[in-house]
Amino acid sequence: MISSRHIMTWRGVGLAAAIFVFVFLILPTAIVIIMSFGDKRDLVFPPTGFSLDLFRRFFAEPGWTQSALLSFRIAILSATLSLVMGTAAAIGLARSRFRGKGLVSLFLHSPIMIPGVAIALALYLYLNMLGIRNNDARLILGHVVMTLPFVLVTVSAGLRHIDETLETVATVMGAGLFTVFRRVTVPLLAPALTIGWLFAFVTSFDEVIVSWFLVRAGHMTLPVKMYSSIMFDISPVLAAVSTMLTGLTVFACIVMAAMQKKEA
């Protein structure tokens, strides 16, 4: 017989374990966010007072703001390129059957599974050999490789939600391919396209290793700048950067969750 006290005990254990893990997941970032609003030059916890000094220092230092702007530019361009190519490929793969399709799909997804350092080294050596020195071009090429598989995953999942007969019926009614795409596929796929773009944007914005290998001196992306700062000088500005970056992440997360709900 299961006594009710017995059940209570199990519930208690489960709850305690869950709370422990969630605290472990959330607390470190939360502490940094709290510290970023502290009023001392050096980080202390708990902060002795509230101030936005660290954020002011971030915006006062061109090194940080330029890195942030570069990251935005690269992430927007990479995500958009990935979305265009990835969506086309996802539709092509979902709406056809041919020999070797599995192989093409595996190939396009494979950067997810491959160690980033291998891709980073490969692009570093290859772009140097080709003599491609433009910092933006180097980063965008690298970031599209890293983000395209994620667009493919999200858009393919979105396509699976769409009833194919909707496209068929539109075609039979006389709609050309482009009309079907614009009037049927895209509206139905809108949530997945939004998720795919945000996924690619965040992945690119946070990308460290490929950027670390590919950036040219003096043109650091935000994560590269953060990486070298944690490595070498541990500037307290990092706390402010972390807060803003996490804010961006939470925002992206909420939009994606909302889109996922819309899709279902």
């Binding site: 009833d163 539109a170 009614m173 709609a175 009037r183 139905l188």
Partner: peptide
Amino acid sequence: PAKRGLGMVFQNYALMPHMTIFQNIAF
């Protein structure tokens, strides 16, 4: 298929979920 001048009705109705009834018929 688009140029064959056909109409088609499916088991699952195949109505566009993002359009109103009016828009569906007007499509």
